[in-house]
Simulated scan of single mutants.
Amino acid sequence: MPLLNTPFQPGQCRAAIAAMPQGPRRDIAVAEYCYFSGQAEKAVRKAELYLTHPDWDARLSACLIYAYANLTLGQIHQTRVALTELQTTLTRVVTNGNQGAAAAFVGAAAAVLLHLPLPEQMPPAGEFLPQLPPGLRAFALYVQAHYLYLKEDYARSAGMVEGALIMGAKVYPISAIYLHLVAVMDYMSLKQTQLAKEHLLEAWRLARPDDLIEGFGEHHGLLGGMLEAVIKPGWPRDFERIIRITYRFSSGWRKIHNPDTGDTVADNLSTTEFAIAMLAARGWTNQEIAEHLRLSPNTVKRYISNAMTALNIKRRQDLKGFMLR
C-alpha cells in the first residue's frame, strides 16, 4: 500500500502520487487514492490489473483494495474472491520476513475491518508490526486499535491511537485519518464527547483538502452521531456524500459480516435512526443524545421508537443485538 506509506502535506496527495516512478507502485497508489476518495468503480478497475501480479506487495495491495471497493459496489462475489486470494497469499508468505509482515498486515486489516475473526495463520501483532515501514505501521496500529475497540477495551484503544499519533503517525495523512476516527469511536463509547469532537475535526482537517472522504462513510455507524453533530452543520454537501458512501458500504459490509458471523446488524434503519440507536445501545439517555445531536428529547424518543418498530423489538436493551459491535 504505497500511498498509505507516503508522507505528504494535506492537499498534496495527488502530487505525491505523480512524483512516484511509473510502475506497479504508482499504479497501486492511484487505486488507493481512488478508493480513499470514494471512487470505488475506478479503484476496482485499477486494482484488478494486479490481482495475480508476481510482485507480492502489489498483489496484496490490489486484493485489499479490490475487496473493499467491490464491497462498496455491492459486488460480494468479487469481494469474496479477493478475500480468498488474500487468505491463500497469507498462507504462502506469512513466514517470509518482510513479505510475511505485509501479508499479516493485510490479513489483519481484511478481517478486523469486516469485524470477522482473525485468520488462523495470523502471527501476533508484536511479531509483524516492527517489520512494517512507518506508514503501514501507523495503519496497522489503527487496525489494532479498532480490534481493541471491538473487544470493548476503549481506553486501551484510545491510548494506542494517542501514542501512535505522538510517535509520528500524523505525517501519514491517510493512516492518521483512520487513527483519529477510531479515537472518535472510543471516546464516544466513553462519553467523552469533547475529545471525540477534537479527533473528528482533526481527521476532517487532514481529509478535506484531498477529498479523502471514504473513511468517514465507512465508520459512520460507529462514530456515535458525531458526523451529524459536527460535519452536517458545517459541511452539509460533504455530509450528504458521506451518507451516500455509508449506505453503499454498509449494505455490502452486512452481506459479508452477517452471514459469516451469524450477527444481525440492522439494515433497515436510516442513518440517523442507526446513529441514535447506537448511542441508546451504549447506554446513553434520551437527554444525553438530545444534547449531543441538538435535538429535543421527544425527537430522540421518536427516532428510537421508529428504530425499535423497524427491528420488531419492544425493549430498549434489545437494540444492542442489532447494532455494530
Rank of each mutant, 00 (worst) to 15 (best):
G23C: 00
N5I: 02
Q99V: 04
T272M: 13
A58H: 02
E288T: 01
T272P: 06
A145P: 05
Y187S: 06
R315F: 05
M1G: 12
D186Y: 03
G100Q: 00
M323P: 01
L116K: 01
L49T: 08
G11S: 01
E198F: 04
Y66M: 02
D318G: 03
E32Y: 09
L212Y: 02
V112Q: 06
T309C: 12
P117F: 02
Q144G: 07
R208D: 12
P134T: 07
G224W: 07
N306A: 12
L60H: 03
I174Q: 11
D263G: 00
I313N: 08
T6Q: 12
L118N: 05
S189Q: 08
P123T: 03
L201T: 08
Q131W: 08
P119G: 10
L206G: 05
I245W: 06
Y303G: 04
P119M: 09
E127I: 05
L51K: 10
L114N: 15
A108H: 13
L269N: 09
A43P: 02
Q9M: 10
L83I: 07
S270C: 02
G107E: 06
Y154V: 06
L3P: 03
A69Y: 02
E273K: 01
V171M: 10
M160F: 02
D267E: 08
T91I: 07
K191M: 14
T261D: 00
M1A: 12
P24S: 08
Q39D: 15
A15N: 12
T52L: 13
I276V: 14
R205I: 04
L181N: 07
T6G: 10
T91A: 15
I245K: 00
C13S: 10
R237D: 15
T88P: 07
K197Y: 04
H146R: 15
H77C: 09
D153N: 12
A138M: 05
R325T: 11
P233N: 07
R294M: 14
P24G: 04
D57F: 09
A176F: 09
L64F: 15
T52D: 15
P124H: 05
P130M: 04
A307L: 05
P236N: 09
A203C: 01
N312D: 15
G100R: 03
E127V: 08
V230Q: 15
S37N: 10
N5Q: 04
A110S: 15
E120H: 09
A307R: 04
A277N: 09
G100K: 00
I276F: 11
I289P: 10
L223R: 12
Q287N: 13
Y147Q: 15
V93K: 01
V265T: 14
R59F: 04
F8Y: 15
L60A: 11
L179K: 06
I256D: 03
W253D: 10
Y147E: 13
L118K: 06
F239Q: 07
Y50M: 00
N70L: 00
S37K: 05
F8G: 06
G135V: 04
L195W: 06
I177V: 12
V81G: 09
G217S: 07
L295C: 06
H257I: 00
L165N: 07
Q99H: 15
T309R: 11
